[in-house]
Amino acid sequence: MDQPFDYDAELRRYHERLRAAAKVGSDDHVLDIGCGTGLTTRDAAKRAVSAVGVDISADMVATARRLAEQEGLGNVSFELADVQDHAFPADRFSLGISRFGTMFFTDAEAAFTNIARALRPGSRLVQLVWQDSKYQEWYAVFRGEQRTEPATGGAFSLADPATSQRILTAAGFIDIQVTDVREQVYYGKDAETAYEAARGLRMTQDLVADLDPTEAEQARQRLLDDLATHQTPDGVWFDSRAWIITAHRRRD
C-alpha cells in the first residue's frame, strides 16, 4: 500500500508564510479549514486559547487527533465535517485560517457564508490558495496532457483574485486583500523518493490511467526523468506561486 503523501513536508515553506500572515494571538479561538493532518491547527493551538481543525478526510482527522495527543495539546480538537454545511456555533471563532484547504468546495459561496457565520463580527480569515496552474512547476510535471481541472471545486478554483473577491464579498467579508507569495514545494530527497511519495496522488495516477504495461513504464520513466531535472543537493523542489487572501467578517 502506498504511504500517504506528506503535504506538511511539501508545503513547509508556505506553512511559515501562513503563520506570519495569521499572527495568531494569545486570546484567539482559531478555526482551521481543511486542516489535513492538523499541523496548522496544532501550531495555532500553541499560541491561542483554542483551535479547531475541520476536514472531510477521516484518515487525516484520525492522524491529526493522534498527533495532537502525542504532543499533549489539550486546547485543540478536530472534527470530521464538510465546512459547506457543518453546524458551527455562531460567532464562535476570532480567527479563521486555511492552508490550501478552501479551493475544493463545490459551492464556495455557501461554504464561505458558513465560515463567516462561525467567525465573530470583525474577525479575520487568512487563507493560502494556489495561483493559476501555469505558475506551478509541480503541476506541469505531474499533469502531462492527461487532465483538466474543474472550474469549481478544483485546486485552482480560487486562482483568479476577482473570483475570490466576488465570493468572499457575497459571503459577508470585507477588507479583502490578496498578496502574491512565491515559494518552492518539496517532493523528496531524490527523484525516486519523490516518485514513490507521489504515487498515490490522483494527478500521478492519471498519468498512467488506461495505459498498457509498456506505456505505463514509459510514462513512469518520463516522470522520473522530469523529477531528476528538479533535484538539488537538498532534494526535489518545484517553483510555485500562491495567494495569501485576508478578509474580515462584516460587522452587521
Score class of each variant (00 low, 15 high):
R42I: 04
D8E: 10
G235S: 02
L224F: 02
A44W: 01
D82Q: 08
K23Q: 14
A90L: 14
D190Y: 10
I56H: 02
D85C: 10
A87S: 14
I33E: 00
G38C: 07
S57Q: 05
V30Y: 06
D212H: 08
Y195D: 10
V141F: 06
L73I: 15
R12D: 11
Q131S: 06
D6L: 10
H86G: 03
F104W: 04
V76Q: 01
G188N: 07
I167T: 00
Q218A: 15
Q70K: 15
V49M: 00
F104T: 08
G154Q: 06
R66N: 13
R199K: 14
M1A: 14
R124C: 12
A140H: 12
I56N: 08
D6V: 09
L119Y: 00
I176A: 08
A197G: 06
F5L: 11
G25M: 03
G36R: 09
E149P: 02
Q221V: 13
K189V: 15
F100N: 01
T169H: 09
D2M: 15
D32P: 11
R202Y: 09
Y195P: 02
T148E: 15
K46H: 09
H248C: 15
T214I: 14
H29V: 13
R182N: 06
W138E: 03
Y187Q: 11
A68I: 01
A111Q: 05
A140S: 11
A90W: 07
S26N: 12
L168Q: 11
F93N: 04
I115A: 10
F238E: 00
G36N: 04
Y195G: 04
D190S: 11
S240N: 08
D132Y: 10
G188V: 03
A62D: 13
Y135L: 03
C35S: 13
A155D: 04
R241Q: 11
L31T: 09
V181S: 08
A197I: 10
A48K: 00
R19L: 12
Y187I: 10
S164C: 13
R12T: 09
L31H: 03
L223K: 00
T40H: 09
R199Q: 14
A118I: 05
T40L: 00
A20S: 09
L158V: 10
E16C: 09
D28Q: 01
V126Q: 00
Q184A: 11
G172F: 04
T169V: 08
R251N: 10
R147Y: 15
A247E: 07
L128M: 11
G25E: 10
A242H: 07
A111Y: 07
L95W: 00
V30W: 01
D27L: 01
P161R: 02
L95S: 02
T63H: 13
A21M: 06
R42S: 05
R249G: 05
G188D: 06
A162P: 12
T169Q: 05
L227Q: 03
Y139T: 07
D107P: 01
G96F: 01
L224M: 06
A62Q: 14
L95M: 00
Y139V: 06
